[in-house]
Structure formats: C-alpha cells, structure tokens
C-alpha cells in the first residue's frame, strides 16, 4: 500500500468515517463518559491505545493463525478474546502506572472490552483488506476520531449546563439531542473524496 493510501485511511477514519458520528460505533462510552472534558479525554486516549494495539495483535492473529488454518469464520470470537485480554492488561498497567487516570476512568475502562468501536475496527481491518501498517494506522486514527468526537461533545455538554432548556429535557434527553446536532455537523464531511 502506498503512502497516499495510508494518509487517506487516516483522514477517513478521523473525519469522514468517524466511528461515532457516521458509523455509530462506541456510542455507550460516548454518552456515558462525556460529562467532563477531563474524563472524556482520558477515555478517548484509552480507546486510542486499545484500538491501536488491538489492530496490531488482531492482524497478526488473523493473518498467521486463522487464515492459514482456514478458520477465518472464527475471527469475531478470536478478536473478542484478544480485546478482552488486552483491556485487562491495560487496566492493570494503568492501575500501576497512572492511578489518577485509572480512577478517573473508573467503570468505563472495563467497558472498553464491550466497546463495539474496538471490535468494529478490527473487523473492518479484515473486511477492507488492510495490511499490517494500514491496520495499525486505521486503529489509531479511528481512536483519534473517537477522541475528537468525545472531547468535542464533552465541551458541548459542559456548556449545556449553563443553557436554558425546557425542564423535561433535563439529563439524557438534551444530551441526545445535542449529540444528534454534533453528528449533523460531522455529516458535512461525508462524501468528501481524498486524492
């Protein structure tokens, strides 16, 4: 794959095919972890880290274990296994190395295990036929797209606190309405062609 292709993968994953706003993957942590910019960026960074690592390891597992043995149909199962082990590992690592981030992420770190964006990215890697470097780039930039989306949305939510809206919209309703509006803004990127 050429350099231009890698760049188009990267920009596509961040803006055009943003995991949250145009593929609607990973909406649970997006809504649950976006009340403060600080926790949102922590969550986003954790997702970048896990998605990048998962893409690399899953590429190896798929290419050198599953495909040669004709077990490609097992990829979803095998990938979930890899992601679960990886998240466990990241959790242990953060607990030891960055306890403040660990306590800030709280329940959402284990939830990355079931974050469909992570499983989505590794399955899309196989579907799109990316090579090793392409997979890793797609994983990391997909995570960056998630980070961008969640941080943007967390800042919007921080402002909503001072806005006046009908009382019946209090809490999640207003949050979902504004999520829709932010997603609409991202719709502007769709259909854009790179190179």
């Amino acid at each position: 794959m050429s350099v231009t292709e890698y760049i188009s993968i990267a920009i596509g994953a961040i803006l055009i095919n943003n995991f949250i706003f145009s593929q609607f993957l990973g909406c649970c942590p997006f809504l649950g972890c976006s009340s403060k910019v600080e926790t949102a960026s922590g969550m986003g960074l954790a997702v970048v880290f896990v998605m990048g690592l998962a893409s690399a390891i899953c590429y190896v597992v798929n290419e050198f274990i599953l495909v040669p043995l004709g077990l490609a149909f097992l990829k979803t199962l095998a990938f979930i296994l890899v992601i679960a082990a990886l998240v466990q590992f990241v959790e242990m690592f953060l607990k030891k190395a960055v306890p403040s981030l660990y306590s800030a992420l709280g329940i959402y770190l284990p939830l990355i295990t079931t974050n469909c964006a992570v499983l989505g990215v590794v399955l899309l890697n196989v579907q799109n036929g990316y090579d090793f470097l392409g997979s890793v780039i797609y994983g990391i930039t997909g995570g960056v797209g998630f980070l961008l989306a969640i941080v943007l949305f967390a800042s919007v939510r921080e402002r909503i606190r001072y806005a006046e809206y009908p009382e019946c919209f209090e809490g999640f309703p207003i949050c979902l309405v504004s999520a829709g509006l932010v997603a609409l803004a991202f719709m502007g990127f769709s259909g854009m062609k790179i190179f």
Partner: peptide, 16 residues
C-alpha cells in the same frame, strides 16, 4: 486454536 489463544492470554495476564 481458541483454547491455545485463551491459555496464552490467561498466562500472560497472570504474569502481568
């Protein structure tokens, strides 16, 4: 394959 992968990850996690 899945058994081996599971055992490998289990061992790694125990070590970690």
């Amino acid at each position: 394959v899945l058994g081996a992968l599971g055992a490998l990850f289990g061992a790694l996690l125990a070590f970690a």
